[in-house]
Design a protein around this nucleic acid. Sequence first.
DNA 1: GTATATTTTTAGATTATTCTAAAAATTGTA
DNA 2: TACAATTTTTAGAATAATCTAAAAATATAC
Lengths: 224, 224
Amino acid sequence: MKSDTSLSKTEENYIKAIFKLSEKDDQPVNTNAISKSMSIAPASVTDMLKKLAEKELIHYEKYKGVRLSLEGKSVATQLIRKHRLWEVFLVNKLQFGWDQVHDIAEELEHIKSESLVNRLDTFLGNPKFDPHGDPIPNREGKFTLRNQTTLSTLVPGQTGILVGVREHSTPFLGYLNDLKIALGTELKLVERIEFDNSLKIEISQQQQTIITEKVGQNLFVKFK
Amino acid sequence: MKSDTSLSKTEENYIKAIFKLSEKDDQPVNTNAISKSMSIAPASVTDMLKKLAEKELIHYEKYKGVRLSLEGKSVATQLIRKHRLWEVFLVNKLQFGWDQVHDIAEELEHIKSESLVNRLDTFLGNPKFDPHGDPIPNREGKFTLRNQTTLSTLVPGQTGILVGVREHSTPFLGYLNDLKIALGTELKLVERIEFDNSLKIEISQQQQTIITEKVGQNLFVKFK
DNA sequence: GTATATTTTTAGATTATTCTAAAAATTGTA
DNA sequence: TACAATTTTTAGAATAATCTAAAAATATAC
Ligand SMILES: [Mn+2]
Ligand SMILES: [Mn+2]
Ligand SMILES: [Mn+2]
Ligand SMILES: [Mn+2]
């Protein structure tokens, strides 16, 4: 049962952090993990977990970590929907670069108006992916799945199209900008260097470069 | 000298309230006036005034009311700029009604990003007025002046075009919607009823209606 | 399986914003 | 000018979100 419908920005940020930490494995999320991901002291996290449990947004047992309740998952999903739709707006309509929009979207996602989100969605043409290739949940919270193959798993000679990035940091996206790599760019794995698993790639059938294994693991591609 | 650049949403709301209260006469604004306009207890207002004075956003002398400093005026103007640009976005791009956008804009105005506002301005085509006919300050904070003549000052037989509304409440705007009165609508003063100064008007050369004096005073018109 | 290390919670404080009640200052009135 | 009414400020307290330090629980290691 949802007791209090209106959540503070702070509460929303905790919910989102917990959601992101439990995305991969569906394991309970530890206090310390939340603390680190949000840069907030563990003691403060404990306090908030009690509060969120009280509101039935999470299932919480002392010392055992937390899981989002169905209600909590829905809150998280709607926040992610808003975040990503705003990012599309900022990039497609206001001409921001994909490396400039995260922090602004981080604020915009907390504006509470269902009709605003839905009208924005319509205005943008119901996009399925955000500027980083991340899927945008629909009104019902359903995500379109994206290819999870990374460039580093291709075999030499194989070509992929960039459909998403795992890392979202400004430095990483700026680095891709410098390499003229954007969503939709054709990337061919030319050679894997044995020594350190770094990759020689060809970008848009033009320049060749070396990227580290780590970079390769952060580039999601689909087969051409 | 501006000491702390970042203001809380709360501080911003006080600055805006003080600005609006001193718009007409340039007199100092009293604690009680702020208290009433914001629905916050006078004692709380006093506390905040001390804080804003500390930050040099207002000139404050105990028991004598406050005035915005130049810095404070600039903060207020930029907030109003953001508020009105967002209202234009909501109405022109997302198809909201002019009676539905104020509260959402009240939230959006607190998003802090200079490039966001300026890009939004460009995207909207640098509008000079918002959906209620209120002037939108430019980057430098300059307002385009709008005609301040109200319908109630016309002489019978005279026609005006609606260029703005003084009241912004949802009920008032909804009432105008019902009457098919919008910005740009032609309004002819047919007759002034002596008894209570109510006005018989003709809307878009079509229906005739009676409106109260109060309504007439809330409709800004320019001569046709 | 005890001792040590790590994680989590509790206790006690702090800052921002708000409140009510009471005191102080100012304003209006006769 | 004196008294009353009004306005404003001060005092003391509450709530939300955070912190540090210490205690308690759990996990790891030998
Ligand atoms: Mn983002
Ligand atoms: Mn994104
Ligand atoms: Mn408004
Ligand atoms: Mn407006």
